[in-house]
Amino acid sequence: MTVANPDSLLAPEEVAHAIAALEGLTGERDVDAWRTEHLGRKSRLMLSLRALGGIDRSRRAAVGRLLNEAKTRLGEALAAKQAALKARRTLDLAALDVSLPGRPLPAGGLHPITRTERAVVAAFASMGFHVIEGPEVELEYYNFEALRIPADHPARDAMDTFYLDGPDGAAPLLLRTHTSPNQIRYMERHEPPIRLIAPGRTYRNEATDATHEWMITQTEVLAVDRGLTLAHLKGTLYEFARHLFGEDREIRFRCDYFPFVEPGVEVSISSPDGWIEILGAGMVHPEILANMGYDPEIHTGFAAGLGVERIAMLRHGIRDIRRFYENDLRFLRQF
C-alpha cells in the first residue's frame, strides 16, 4: 500500500481542474468513475488524509485544513452533479396518459333488497328495535287465526294464500302472506317491553305486474310496553322516514283496517310528488294482547308492516317491481 506524501498533493488548481472535468461528464457511469478517482478509498486525497499522521506536527494542521477543504469542494461538486443527473433522468421518461383507466378490479355488490332491508333495520335499530326472524312456511294459526282472521273471514280475500300439504294427518301448511305471524310467535314466549323488527320473505298467490309481485320482502315492526300510544307509532315512523328519505319528511295517517290492530292506519310520507303510501300499521288489538296473557289496560303496543320492495322502489326511483327478481346484472350493478 502506497503511502502518499501529503505535501505533494492537491494544489487548489488541481482541485479546480478535477471539478471542471466533472462538469463535462454526462453519464452516470463516468460520474461514478470520477468519484472513485477523486473521492474513493484509494484516491490520492483519501490516501493523503490517512497519511496526515505521519508528517511533521508543525505542518500537520495546515496541510490537514487544505486537504479537508479540497474534500469538501469535491464532495459538493459531486452532489450537485448527481442531483442534476437525477433530475434529467426523471425528465427523460415518457409522460403517462393519466387519463387511461386503472387496471380493472372485479366488482361485486349487494342486491338492492338486501341494501334496503338493512337500511330499514338500521333505522329501527337506532330506536332500540332488534331483529327477530320466523318461519316462512307457517301454520294457519299464526298466519291467520291468532291474528283475528278466522277461516272464511273476508280479510283473507286480500291475502290469496299458497297452501302446502302438511305431513300425513297434520294441519295444512301455508306460505306466510305477511310477517305478522312473528308478532304472535314472539309474544307467546316473551314479556313486555318488546321492540322488534322481523324482516323476511312473504308470498301472495296473485298475478304480477309493475306494482305487484307474488313474493315480496316484508318487515314487521312491533312494540309493546306500558303507555305506548298511536302517537308513539307516529313518532317512530316519522323517525324511520327521516332515516330513509331525509330530514324534511312528514308522516300522515289515514284510517285503514287490518283485523289485528285497532285503530288501524295507512301511513303515507310526504314527497315532492305528494303523499305516498308506504305501510299499514296500528295499535295491537287488545284481544290479541289479552290472548298473549298481557293486560291491555296496562300494556299497549303498536305494529307496522312495510314492504321492502316498495321502499326500495321509492329510494331508487325503480318503476317496476319485477326488476328485483329478474337479477339482470345491468340492473344489479346500479346500486
Binding site: 355488490g109 342486491h111 313474493m215 327478481y325
Partner: peptide, 8 residues
C-alpha cells in the same frame, strides 16, 4: 353480485 331468486 348478489341475486335474489324465487323460493318456488
Amino acid at each position: 353480485y348478489e341475486v335474489q331468486t324465487y323460493s318456488l
